[in-house]
Amino acid sequence: MIKIVNKKVIAENIVMIELESDSISKKIQAGQFIILRVNSKGERIPLTVVDKNCQKGTITLVYQIVGKTTKLLNKLNIGDSISDLVGPLGHPTEIKNYGTVVVVGGGVGIAELLPVSKSLKEIGNIVIGIIGAKTKNMLIFENEMRTVCDKLFITTDDGSYERKGFVTDVLKELLVQSTNNISIVYAVGPVPMMKSVCEITKLSNIKTIVSLNPIMVDGTGMCGSCRVSINNETKFACVDGPEFDGHAVDWDELSKRLKLFVEQEKVALDTLE
């Protein structure tokens, strides 16, 4: 059993929890993820790790309450336990000094973007951040990203905060300004966002790394549920990724595969109501 030692609602339907896991806290690096199971009848879901505390032996996760499993997880409070946690999974982000990096995050993806941005900054990159959310109440880690980034742009779909529009609007403008001299773009968020980012950066031929979130079961390479096409070659996001060259990803296939269990997800949610 894995104990929840802290819990905090950080935005509308977005929650941060701190879990006891000495082994993972000492191992996990930016870009990696974990898989957890809430209870003995639960499914295994991959989640982003936003922070770790090696001294305390804890890791901090962020989840958005969307389906049955995240609802069940959200019923638990400080002092409660989840039944299973395994990790770290996937490859860490390749952190090196690229020069100027643009990091783009949408929605709950910003949780994954934050540790990557921190690591990129620490090694000496100029980090330009663009983060966006549907609306002001759903924006997370604005202050943390502001501390890490040399420049930070914020968009909301509905214009309720900062600039109205999408993260890609800002990205387009940054790419036009040749003075920015951008070496690489790192994007994480909903599939449509990552896809648009890649379409834009492809025009300027700027290398773009994305972190993919397909459906997973074991997370160890054993089942192939998370297979994605990269340059028409099948890769497993859990062990070959989760990060890939965004220009090589078959985005349509990924969006379609993400909808495989839509009906079942509704049925599962109904059992909670």
Partner: peptide, 10 residues
């Protein structure tokens, strides 16, 4: 045993 168990199959 879905939906008693949470993991689906389609």
């Amino acid at each position: 045993k879905f939906p008693e168990y949470d993991t689906p199959i389609n």
